[in-house]
Design a binder for these strands. Structure first.
Lengths: 122, 122
DNA sequence: CGGAATCCGATAAGATACTG
DNA sequence: CAGTATCTTATCGGATTCCG
């Protein structure tokens, strides 16, 4: 299997300041986590700092419903479930990269404008 | 000035089924409306079917705060206010187009998966 | 014309506790 | 391990009314 996911892979990506969003709050990050290969539920929880099992389940179910990933449950003890991107899910990486590139180029400018606004607007 | 905006320019773009979003619910559409040139408050209301003045104001203020557009009020009677994209706002068109292209290519597949899910999941 | 003020409902997201 | 169940809170978007 692949190496464990870096628990800090999303520090520096606070969702509230990104103007471009894919799916719900967690969708894009889940896609990034699954990009190298299939992962288990618990593996996903680590980098998605503070996500509760309820919310992670909701996001994964919605993505499964939309054909972005597959869920495979192995009948073992202890149970094992793996989530894997479909081709459709993988196709979202391209527009996601466009959004990331925009952020690298322009996010600082947006934040600067916001700073100035709050400093000068009563 | 430019031609009036087509009131139907966004029919066929229901926001709930698009997995890619820029800003809030209306941001991307406002950018499209301003792409050809500056527009007045009332001009924007027509294609943004059913948007209330409160919500349109909120979106425009947030975009102004983030440096995506400028607001210019002319001291005339009756009053006239024009909104115009900044270079920063215009820079979002590129990732927006990436999202639109994804939709053209893959949205039908997503909707098909969703259909199947609701047809087969109890 | 271009908003502001107020109120309201729906939904998203999280906290907490429990289970096959 | 991989969730489910229940509850609560926060935010968003909308309806309505009024104003300079």
């Amino acid at each position: 299997m692949a190496d464990p996911l870096d628990p800090d892979m999303f520090t520096g990506c606070p969702p509230h300041l990104a103007p471009i969003r894919v799916g719900d709050k967690w969708t894009a990050k889940i896609i990034r986590c699954l990009e190298p290969g299939p992962r288990r539920f618990t593996e996903l929880q680590a980098p998605l700092r503070g996500i509760t099992p309820k919310v992670l389940t909701e996001s994964l179910r919605a993505m499964e419903r939309d054909g972005l990933l597959t869920r495979t449950a192995y009948q073992e003890i202890p149970p094992r479930v793996e989530y894997e991107l479909t081709d459709l899910g993988r196709s979202l990486i391209e527009p996601m990269n466009a959004g990331c590139e925009w952020s690298r180029k322009h996010l600082a400018e947006l934040l600067q404008a916001r700073e100035t606004w709050y400093a000068t607007t009563p």
